[in-house]
Each structure stands twice: as structure tokens, then as C-alpha cells.
Design a protein around this nucleic acid. Sequence first.
DNA 1: TTAGTTAGTTACTTTATGTAAGTAAGTATA
DNA 2: TATACTTACTTACATAAAGTAACTAACTAA
Lengths: 106, 106
Amino acid sequence: MKQPTICPRFEKAISLLSQRWTALVIYQLLSGTQRFSEIQSAIGISGKVLSERLKDLEHQDVVKRKVIPETPVVIEYSLTEKGHSLEPILREIENWSQLWVPPVTE
Amino acid sequence: MKQPTICPRFEKAISLLSQRWTALVIYQLLSGTQRFSEIQSAIGISGKVLSERLKDLEHQDVVKRKVIPETPVVIEYSLTEKGHSLEPILREIENWSQLWVPPVTE
DNA sequence: TTAGTTAGTTACTTTATGTAAGTAAGTATA
DNA sequence: TATACTTACTTACATAAAGTAACTAACTAA
């Protein structure tokens, strides 16, 4: 069964944002350029999957990768213009979460 | 590695929305009450996963389920108030997709 | 020579999803 | 009476995605 009646551009956007970890990676980069290991420890993603996601996002022109040949090598990840354009969506989610997700009591 | 520094309520919201199919199911229900098979054919999801998602969403008070004892039985799914409160997020995504996702040429 | 750094990759396991067939409860048809 | 048809699922099995932990390249420092 494969006959969706939903707008394909919307679907594409959803398939980007609803891939596991992708939204969190972008959200994390909203606060500025970050390195591989920073993103990794901030959101608790495995190196394997983070590596995959960053490659995807680079290919989709959402994320920029910059190699700094220090020692040891440093790689900086940041958002492109397209990446930044996702901010309003993430802010809406942030806002919604404050209104509708019960605070965690631990 | 599990030491995220991201707001747990935001993370919860993301984990809801970035679960595969969930956003599409909610989006589909934004246009009104629908039956199992309508949702299924509109977004191209398998019966198995749709059934799982609708149960989850019911438990999270995002979706309402109403049994109509006709013959054969009809089950109507619709959004709760919490479900409707997600509309701005989905509209942002919709809007973004029109601006940033290239039109499909087929 | 051994240890330490960052940004990954590899092999293997567990979980999630897809596919297709089957089920319950009822009506209609032959 | 038996067979077929409906909706809304569930089940069994196969494939794809994600988690875990160990490993690598290239270089420095001890």
C-alpha cells in the first residue's frame, strides 16, 4: 500500500525532521558551531549514528563541516542558511513542550 | 553515553514527533475525524504500525477513539485538545517545506 | 615505546518497521 | 447452510535501522 495523498514536499520535510536524532542535532547547532564530541555528549547519541546524520545533513545542505588542521584535528559543525531556517519549527516544538509536556519529577 | 544536557520536556516532545509516522498521522487528523482505513491509505502506513501509533497517541491523550457499533463496525479517530495544540508546529513544517523543499518533478 | 588526543569506522546485537496472511463479528448472497 | 464480504485489527516472519563496544588514522607528548 503506497498511494499517499499528502503533499510530497511536506512529506519530505517530515521525513527529514522525524528521522531519529535529526531534530535534536539541528536544535543543538542552533546555539552555535559545535564539534563532533560536543554534539555527541550534549544529546547522548552514539558516534556511529551521529556520523551518519551529519553526513546526511551535509548532503542536504542543512549543516556545514569545517576541518581545522590542528593537532589533534578539530572539526566544526554549523548550520547553513537552510539549517537556520528550521529554527521557527524547533521553537514551536520548544514552546509546545513547555505547555503540554508535564515537568519531569525525579 | 547517556548524559544529555537538553531540556527533558523538549526531548519528550521531540521523541513524540520524531517517531516515524506519528507527525503524519496527526497532520492527517488535522483535517478532521477519520477512520482507520482512511488514515492508512492517505499516508501509506501499514495496518500494523498504524495500530501501534494510534494506541500510543491515545495513551498520550493526543488522539480520541470512538467505536460506532454499525455493521461492520466503524471506528472514528480524532484529535483531542492536546492533539490540536500541535497544529502550529505542523503548519510551520508545512510552510517551511514550501520554502525549502524543491518541488517534485515527476 | 607507550599513552593520549579527535573524529570517526567496524563488527555484532537488539529494536523497529515492512509484508502478507489470518481473525472476529456481523451481513448479504447462493 | 455454506461461502463471500466488510472493518479493524493481530500474528508470524523478513528486512532495515539503531545501540554498543572495540578499533583506526594521524599526530603529539612523555
